[in-house]
């Protein structure tokens, strides 16, 4: 555990060959988060640059979800800073952070099952005031997921698993985020659906949204990511370009949960 953050800072080359290299839009600087006496994140430092897809790998209880919750202001870090486009956002309330342009697709979709598809999309845009902008983004989501268009009036809970995942992503996109956080988008989906979801993520990224995705399915996540971090028991143990991580034997062990 002592060899944490071996190569996070000072290696712009980690941004991989074709990835756009820009100033980081989202940064965690030496962040520690605790739930009461239990320390979950320990001195985590990472960055997401504009236009990237960055994935955070790790086994159960590694602190992946807590990382997202910390970014979104749902828990306060006990130490360290969260910086979003040059501005500290730790300490801000979740609504303010969402308004600044970070939204999350929660684990297990977590739709508002008794509300209609349309209402779910509208909830996503809750923090926005510009009616035309919202409509534009709703249209964008419906273009991305034509199946949702047929079901606008239907109760979200009656959608199939794949459709629910589309709606969960769509709901986050109507907030028009600059950074989209995704918590285990592959969870509970059939392999074919997982592939579809990841190609959708790639598509969204190509349309200009920066994506930070937390996953256990490392193969899948690394195949679309530019860079990746590996989290273990609250600490970043590896960070590299997606390609190198895919080939790194340590990653292969890491996402099985046992690092030598």
């Amino acid at each position: 555990m002592s060899d944490r953050e071996p190569s996070v800072d000072g290696d712009p080359a980690a941004g991989a060959g074709d990835g756009p290299v820009e100033a980081p839009v989202l940064e965690l600087r030496n962040v520690s988060t605790s739930y009461g006496p239990v320390r979950v994140l320990e001195d985590v430092t990472m960055e997401v640059r504009a236009g990237e897809v960055v994935c955070l790998l790790g086994s159960n209880a590694a602190g992946k979800t807590t990382t997202l919750r910390t970014i979104l202001g749902l828990v306060r870090p006990s130490k360290g800073e969260v910086v979003f486009s040059g501005e500290r956002i730790d300490g801000l309330s979740t609504p303010d952070i969402v308004a600044k342009g970070i939204t999350m697709v929660p684990e297990n979709r977590r739709l508002f099952g008794r509300m209609s598809v349309r209402e779910n999309l509208e909830i996503g845009a809750h923090m926005r005031e510009d009616k035309e902008g919202i409509q534009r983004d709703v249209d964008r989501v419906l273009t991305l997921f034509p199946r949702l268009k047929e079901r606008l009036g239907q109760k979200a809970g009656t959608l199939s698993g794949g459709e629910q995942q589309m709606l969960a992503i769509g709901r986050a996109l109507t907030a028009n985020p600059r950074v989209l956080l995704m918590d285990e988008p592959s969870m509970g989906l059939a392999p074919i659906l997982v592939e579809q979801v990841f190609s959708t993520i790639k598509e969204i990224n190509e349309q200009g949204t920066t994506i930070f995705v937390v996953e256990q399915n490392a193969n899948m996540a690394l195949s679309i990511a530019d860079r990746g971090y590996v989290l273990q028991t609250g600490q970043i143990v590896l960070s590299d370009s997606a390609k190198s991580l895919l080939e790194d034997p340590r990653t292969r062990e890491a996402y099985l949960g046992e690092l030598a």
Partner: peptide, 23 residues
Amino acid sequence: SRVGRAWAAMREDESVAEAMGIS
């Protein structure tokens, strides 16, 4: 209204509503 939808979301799943930016 927008308020009504926020309430409905809160009624269904408070944590997610919070994560969506609903105060």
